[in-house]
């Protein structure tokens, strides 16, 4: 079953996805479904002995290209629609014990190229209005599958947080004639206290309004809206700054740092979003090496985050852990 149910109180869709678990045989205890299938071994999701990067449709998607009819009837109060869309899994590397942070910057660059291809292809589907690329990493946010991977949801609507950013960006442009994120970036560069790292094409910073202690945003220096707008140099620079931020994260507490990573790009509904500006946001759940930030009453029930740290101090902690990124092959990078 999967369907979209309308929440009239909030004016947003909720996906319900319940999947029957039918299994006739069980995999071995140490089985990883994202590893390559070894010759003679138990078959994983990926039926080849090796690969660089793999994208595939999620076995239990909450959105799918040809969804079943909703299990409940819609009413005037409660519109219901089929859960149309696409849910993909992206396996970053065949190395089970790696992480995106531990991968060479060249592999991260390849991931950027794959992201771009997936964005282009999924955006072209007529039922897709927003392509959302993200990664959930770490047991702290409930991920128990350690093999490095991310996900893509191709939604049949523009999701509410993105809609909010679009509204704010549009209003800023109407009021000032300028791009909101270009202004934010210029302000961060001028101030400098919250900058974590930068190169010719991107800057990484803890936003002034950070909701999580180690929240980091990466924004393109050039005013562009999507991965598909980037030059080759910009894609390499994006890989470099991602590597920089990820390595700094891991050095913070000398552990593999958990996070949610989300890409915010223009919608794919055919509209004109020239006022929007590409960026990546990281939401790490850790406050300290052992303490989690919980989404408690104020955050969950009122939507106001309480951050008991200063963005300026957290940025300095991360900045102190920035190391040069080394490319094995000639080219740009920092």
């Amino acid at each position: 079953m999967s369907e979209l149910r309308w929440n009239p109180l909030m004016g947003e869709w909720v996906a319900t996805a319940t999947h029957r678990q039918t299994r006739t045989f069980l995999p071995p205890a140490d089985f990883c479904p994202l590893c390559p299938t070894k010759p003679g071994g138990f078959p994983t999701e990926i039926p080849e002995p090796t690969y660089d990067i793999v994208a595939f449709e999620n076995r239990f998607p909450s959105l799918q290209p040809e969804p079943p009819a909703p299990a409940v009837e819609a009413t005037e109060l409660y519109p219901v629609r089929p859960g149309v869309g696409v849910c993909e899994v992206l396996v970053y590397t065949p190395h089970h014990n790696s992480t995106l942070a531990a991968e060479p910057v060249e592999q991260i660059h390849q991931l950027v190229e794959v992201w771009t291809d997936r964005f282009r292809e999924l955006s072209a589907l007529e039922f897709v209005e927003y392509v959302f690329i993200f990664e959930n990493k770490g047991e702290a946010i409930g991920v128990t599958l350690h093999h490095p991977h991310g996900q893509i949801y191709a939604y049949p609507f523009i999701p509410p947080r993105v809609e909010r950013e679009l509204e704010q960006s549009r209003a800023h442009r109407d009021k000032t004639g300028r791009c909101l994120l270009c202004d934010i970036l210029a302000g961060e560069r001028a101030d400098g206290r919250r900058i974590v790292a930068s190169n010719d094409s991107f800057a990484a910073y803890v936003p002034f309004f950070a909701r999580y202690p180690y929240e980091v945003h990466i924004a393109s220096a050039r005013h562009l809206q999507a991965l598909t707008d980037m030059t080759d140099v910009e894609q390499r620079d994006l890989a470099s700054i991602l590597k920089t931020v990820l390595v700094a994260y891991d050095k913070l507490f000398d552990l593999s740092f958990p996070y949610m990573m989300v890409l915010h790009q223009r919608p794919s509904d055919g509209g004109d979003y020239d006022y929007y500006h590409f960026h990546i946001e990281f939401y790490p759940p850790l406050r300290t090496a052992t303490k989690l930030k919980y989404l408690a009453g104020s955050e969950s029930g009122a939507g106001m985050f309480i951050n008991d740290t200063l963005a300026e101090e957290k940025a300095a902690e991360l900045r102190a852990r920035v190391a040069p990124v080394v490319w094995q092959k000639e080219g740009s990078g920092d």
Binding site: H19, Q21, R23, L26, P27, A29, D30, F31, C32, P33, L34, C35, E45, N58, R59, F60, P61, C87, V89, T93, H95, H96, N97, S98, T99, A102, E103, P104, Q107, N136, G142, V143, T144, L145, H146, H147, H149, Q151
Partner: peptide, 25 residues
């Protein structure tokens, strides 16, 4: 290969024997 990568598989720690990656996320 990256430092922490290895060919050997560590236990995948999939909680349910069904091993559905997304069902656990």
């Amino acid at each position: 290969p990256p430092e922490s990568a290895g060919d050997e598989q560590a236990p995948a720690r999939v909680e349910e024997p069904t091993a559905e990656p997304q069902a656990t996320e």
